[in-house]
Design a protein around this nucleic acid. Structure first.
Lengths: 191, 191
DNA sequence: TGTTTTTAGTAAGGTGGCTAACTATTTCTC
DNA sequence: GAGAAATAGTTAGCCACCTTACTAAAAACA
């Protein structure tokens, strides 16, 4: 499902106009920011359309990607709902909902855990595995196509710049949580 | 509302491993792609958290941004639900839902159109206008902060690279629609 | 042993989509 | 001018993907 975004980015001159009204608005910063939002949205739409061709959604795809059997041992594979929730940064309740639909469609199988009876162990079924093997070649070709206008060097530059932004975004999140925690201290602490 | 994304991107060596299984997978392409998805998601989360502080959501914010009074005449302002829907590339039904909640909260006012009795004219109320004027300074400062690790030159580079990707994504969408249209022609046409 | 924490899942609610159908109005065609 | 077609906004129903609060059971801790 898509977030609302503008079909067209505002013209630069509109940003400059708006900056007269809102002095904190830096037109070139805003422009770059909006390019990021837009590009992210548009590639997501392309991927989602491909998923829809196969009657699957982004969320379910990600679950199956996490569960897919991997050759070699370099990359761990989660197996409990809590592990999936942690990797995807969502609540267990969300995972339950996703797994419910995947189980309903025969793509995953849940079994009680062996060590801990509270736990469930989650696996792709052979059907789920086959489904992913059928989907992924074209998925990766689509990714290649989307990035096809960028040289290897440009892709590396892009990754570097985006990492700078992500780092900043994460820092905003951390600073925000500290701010929130401080606000929640009883007033008497400040004596 | 966020889409499911991985908390951590897979390590490059995991991509290389996976490429052995899926030959279409190009590790460096995939890596850049995932950086885009992640960065987009993370900045969205930061913005959404700020919106939540003011009891508003991304979709409602965008509606109000489109409706906000603008000094000068360089930038048109939409005024009907259909115009909003067109600018945001969603259905009129979706706009109805968003406007319902904004009207409920006193931020927008709907009036019958003057020229065409099918239409509604939509405006920010003074309360809505004041709300946005209260929110936007910090919003723009947040944007500046998020992009703060990038120089002016880097921002221009980023915008250029992202535009290349957006262009490709849009082309994928166009190609897809042509493909779909061709598939829908009656079989007899091919004689 | 008793208390606290953890696990998966349920219930309830929200956001932001969609489609199809509807009603009223406007535009188009003959 | 009459009727058909298109348009505008809304309604109803559905979906995906969240959240929090809660439950029962199990595990960990003191």
């Amino acid at each position: 499902m898509q977030r609302l975004v503008l079909k067209e980015l505002p013209r630069y001159e509109c940003l400059v106009e708006a900056a007269k009204q809102f002095p904190d608005l830096n037109p070139s910063v805003c422009e770059a920011f909006m390019h990021l939002i837009r590009a992210g949205d548009e590639v997501s739409r392309v991927m989602d359309a491909h998923f829809a061709d196969h009657d699957i959604t982004h969320g379910r795809f990600l679950m199956m990607m996490l569960l897919i059997e991997k050759k070699g041992t370099a990359c761990a594979r989660p197996s409990t709902p809590a592990e999936l929730a942690d990797l995807a940064s969502v609540s267990r309740a969300t995972i339950t909902g996703l797994l419910d639909t995947l189980e309903r469609d025969g793509f995953v199988r849940r079994e009680p855990g062996t060590d801990d009876r509270r736990q469930m162990s989650v696996h792709l079924t052979p059907e789920g595995q086959a489904f992913m093997h059928g989907l992924l070649p074209e998925h990766f070709r689509l990714v290649n196509d989307l990035m096809g206008n960028l040289s290897e060097h440009e892709r590396a530059t892009l990754a570097k710049l985006l990492t700078k932004i992500s780092t900043k975004a994460v820092a905003c999140g951390v600073a925000r949580r500290q701010e929130t925690s401080a606000a929640e201290l009883p007033a008497t602490i400040h004596i």
